[in-house]
Design a binder for these strands. Structure first.
Lengths: 240, 240
DNA sequence: CCTTGCGATGAATCCATAT
DNA sequence: GATATGGATTCATCGCAAG
C-alpha cells in the first residue's frame, strides 16, 4: 500500500503520466450542473449553487464549476481520453454524474474511447423531499472499461445500487463522497492494483483504496485540499 | 373511473386524439436495446435478447424491438411530440428506459418539447448478477412536464427511487412492470385525472390507474395483449 | 401456522462455434 | 472475414411443496 499525490490541473498532470500504468480510474469531476440555465450554472459559486441558504457548515471553494453543458462534455472527453492512454487494457473506470449531466457524461466517456458498461445509482436516503414531484434522490456512477473487461479473478459480484446516506461527519469537501460509497467502487479494480483519481478533492477515493489494499494516485488543483487529503491518507495508512 | 382501449399503432392512434385532453402520460415503449452490437439489437427476438437461455416461461411476442439507436431516438421524439399536443399544460410524463437507451431517451423527451424534470431509478433486487461487474439492477423512469409543473395540490411527496422485485405472478408480458411500480408512478397525475399509456401491453398502468381513481386511455398494437389487458382492467373495476 | 428447502427466473452478457 | 446462433454463467428473490 502506498500513494502518490500530484498538485496541479488534472488534464496537464495526466499528460505527464506513462502509458498503461494504471489499473482503474475513479473520478468525481466538478459537474458544472445545478441551475436550469447555462447562465445560472456559470455565474454562481459552488457554495451558492449547491448549499441550502442558511447552511452554517462551509468548505474551501473548489475549481472547475464554470463550464456550460457543451464545454463540460468536450472537457470530459479530453481528460477521459488521457485516462484511457494511462490505463491498462481491460482496466475499469467509474465516473460520477448527477441526473442532469448524465447523458453528456456517457457521451464523453465513449468519445474518450472507453466502452460504456453500465450505470450504478447512488441512492441518498437523506435527500430533501419535494411536494408534488419525484424526489431527486440519486447520483449516478457511470462505469466502463478500456476495451473488453475480460476475466476478472478475485472480484465477486458487485452491487447494482449503492445506498448510503450523506453524513456531514464524513464530508471534508462540499461534494465529498462517503467512504462507504467509495469502498464499493474500488472493488471493481483488480486486487492490489493502482487506482487513479484525477479530481481527488479531500481524498475519499484514496482512503477507501488504501483501506482495501490498492495503491493510489491522486491529482488535485487546490493546495488546501492536497493538505487535507494527505492528512487523511496518512491516517488511513497508520490505522488500517 | 373508466377506461378506453385503442387497437393500433401508437403514433397513428395518437394523431387522432384531441388537443389538451390528457392529464398525464406514462409510457413503456419497446427499448430496442440488449446486445452489444447494433446487429444483435435489431436482429434478435426479444426472447433471445432478454431471457436467460433455458428459461421455460414464455410470453406472446411484441412489436417494435427492431430499431437501431438513431431511429429509436427519432421515433421517440415523434410520439413524444404527439403526446405533448394531447397533454394539458403542466401535465407530467413518465417514460421507461434501460441504462443503454437512457441518454437517447432524455434527448428525445426534450426534442419532443417536454421539460425534463428528473430520473427515478426502479431498483430490481432480483436482478441477474454477473461476476466481476456491477450488477445491472435498475431500469429508469425519465419524467418531465408540459411546460412548468406549477402547483400540484393533492399530491404528496413522491419517491426518488422505487424498489420492487420482479414477480412472475405480476407479469403477463416479457417486459411487464409490477403493479406496485405503476402505483407509485400514477400518483404524479392530478387526482381523478386521465392517464394515457401509448404502449399498454398487458395493461399494468391501467390497473394501477383505475385502482387509484384515475381514468385510463391505452393504445396497443397486439390484439393478443388488448384481450389480456381488457380482462385485467375489468377485473380491477369489479374488485377495487 | 411457521420453517426449511428446492427449483425457477431475471428488458444480460460474453464468447465459442457455425454459416 | 463478416454475420448469425447458441450455450454457460451468476445469485437474490419468489413460489410452492414438504416437514
Amino acid at each position: 500500500m502506498s500513494y502518490t499525490l500530484y498538485h496541479g490541473d488534472a488534464l496537464a498532470r495526466l499528460r505527464t503520466l506513462p502509458d498503461a500504468s494504471i489499473d482503474a480510474v475513479i473520478a468525481d469531476e466538478p459537474y458544472s450542473s445545478g441551475g436550469t440555465s447555462s447562465r445560472e450554472r456559470i455565474s454562481r459559486s459552488p457554495r451558492d449553487k449547491y448549499q441550502t441558504s442558511g447552511t452554517e457548515r462551509t468548505y474551501p471553494t473548489f475549481y472547475g464549476e464554470h463550464r456550460d453543458q457543451r464545454s463540460f462534455g468536450y472537457w470530459c472527453a479530453l481528460w477521459l481520453a488521457e485516462c484511457l492512454r494511462i490505463a491498462q487494457p481491460g482496466a475499469p473506470i467509474c465516473v460520477f454524474s448527477d441526473w442532469r449531466q448524465l447523458p453528456t457524461a456517457t457521451d464523453a466517456l465513449q468519445a474518450g474511447g472507453w466502452r460504456w458498461q453500465g450505470i450504478v445509482p447512488w441512492n441518498k436516503p437523506s435527500a430533501r423531499p419535494h411536494l408534488g414531484r419525484f424526489t431527486n434522490q440519486c447520483e449516478y456512477v457511470i462505469w466502463g472499461s478500456n476495451g473488453p473487461l475480460g476475466e476478472r479473478p478475485g472480484i465477486g459480484v458487485l452491487p447494482g445500487l449503492i445506498t448510503v446516506p450523506v453524513v456531514a461527519r464524513d464530508k471534508f469537501h462540499l461534494t465529498g463522497k462517503p467512504i462507504a460509497v467509495m469502498e464499493q467502487l474500488v472493488r471493481i479494480c483488480a486486487p492490489g492494483g493502482t487506482i487513479l483519481d484525477p479530481f481527488m478533492g479531500s481524498g475519499s477515493t484514496g482512503v477507501a483504496a488504501l483501506k482495501h489494499g490498492y495503491r493510489f494516485i491522486g491529482i488535485e488543483q487546490s493546495a488546501e485540499y492536497i493538505a487535507i487529503a494527505q492528512e487523511r491518507l496518512e491516517d488511513a495508512l497508520q490505522n488500517p
